[in-house]
Design a protein around this nucleic acid. Structure first.
Ligand SMILES: [Mn+2]
Ligand SMILES: [Mn+2]
Ligand SMILES: [Mn+2]
Ligand SMILES: [Mn+2]
Lengths: 218, 218
DNA sequence: ATCTATTTTTAGTTTTGTCTAAATTTAATT
DNA sequence: AATTAAATTTAGACAAAACTAAAAATAGAT
């Protein structure tokens, strides 16, 4: 399994190709910042290896074996992200790039030991779930802050946009995962929100609210 | 800097090419389990980049820039080895293979943080010195056990052969770095040694004694 | 100084992964 | 149903890093 093959599988998974949904050549090319013709070549190779279903002109989806492989890469990526934050004091906007490299290290023992060292975390620094060793993967029950009703309360559990600028913006405004949130008011004009974050009142744009995941309190 | 280029520089350094000594194409090829023609190709490429001095038919040596790069790879390799042993309970015969991969991860912050986490170790699990961040590199004053005089005492500080079988043999015989050693007697017939290891008397073959480094007590 | 064995380089291929440009298929519109 | 636009694939090329086989240079031995 080459690094490139691994990256394609991961991308296809992230685009939804794990649920036997067909992902288009163009979508993959765009996501990977490569050319559609390169994607076609790789699609053939991965199909040959039984990792994707590929029908000419119809796009690709992952086979069971492809899903399993994709999840193992994602598991490694997210565990390394946790490691960098928890053990090496990286901030959550610095970890992705390094994890992109570390996810390709081949040693089952290594990642299992990292998992153990971290006490088997369930979520990465951005709130994304970490697949288990045996490939189980469960999305958390969460909602976008922008979709919550007035007066609803919850806890901030993840980000939709995990780009460096957005993460830095959240840091600057002291918004972090684990923070308690209550929706106070919605402004019809610009869809901005008045919220209470850890007891402190603040105003938040729709842009921000539609990129923050919240777990609603029961 | 590609992974392959990094591996060539590291190999040339290990063969002595850091002291402006010329290393032959064949020597490099043998060490890297590759073909001499491949080495020639890479020699040209590295010379082009100013990392080695290469004269046709005369072999290669590292430039200052080449030495600096080689040392930074070796630093990463050895720090990762310490990390694996100290933080993840790997045994010293398991770390080399994984470190061969980890040494190519590109992130200055990552390796500096690992260094800090490990409390700036000076030696790796096999007793080899770890170059400093600014490329200083000092071999320890050490001697092969086989070259020590009768009644001399010291501490076991390293291995010459760091192959898996040798390391496992040492484990099995409870010989570890840090152990105190006294040479009791030499057997002329087969060059074997009678030694005291941590107070316990034992017999050791010449094969073993000539692969164990000892720091002599003053 | 010449011959020979060894080392090293060159020339030409291969594999992996990418690209461009052209051809083909599909999808949308009239 | 024919036309057109967009998506996709093919064909051919390229760079990196390896290989094999042949040619050239060096070093050792006579
Ligand atoms: Mn990430
Ligand atoms: Mn993440
Ligand atoms: Mn090693
Ligand atoms: Mn070592």
């Amino acid at each position: 399994m080459t690094r490139s093959e691994e990256n394609y599988l991961k991308t296809i998974f992230h685009l939804g190709g794990g649920d036997s949904k067909s992902i288009t050549t163009n979508a993959i090319a765009e996501q990977m910042e490569t050319k559609p013709s390169s994607v076609t070549d790789m699609a053939k190779k991965l199909a040959e290896k039984g990792l994707v279903n590929y029908v000419k002109y119809q796009g690709v989806s992952l086979t069971d074996s492809g899903v399993k492989t994709a999840l193992s890469i994602i598991r490694k990526h997210r565990l390394w992200e946790v490691f960098l934050v928890e053990k090496l004091d990286f901030s959550w906007d610095e970890v992705h790039e390094v994890a992109e490299q570390l996810e390709h290290i081949k040693s089952e023992k290594l990642i299992d030991k990292i998992d153990e060292l971290l006490n088997f975390p369930k979520y990465d620094p951005h709130g994304d779930p970490i697949p288990t060793k045996d490939g189980k993967f469960q999305e958390r029950d969460k909602k976008l802050l922008s979709e919550m009703a007035i007066n609803a309360t919850g806890v901030c559990v993840g980000v939709k946009d995990s780009s460096v600028p957005f993460l830095k913006f959240l840091d600057k405004n002291k918004i972090a995962l684990g923070n308690s949130i209550k929706v106070l008011d919605k402004e019809d004009f610009d869809n901005s929100l008045r919220i209470q974050l850890e007891g402190k009142e603040m105003r938040i744009s729709h842009q921000i609210a539609s990129n923050l995941y919240v777990k609603k309190n029961d």
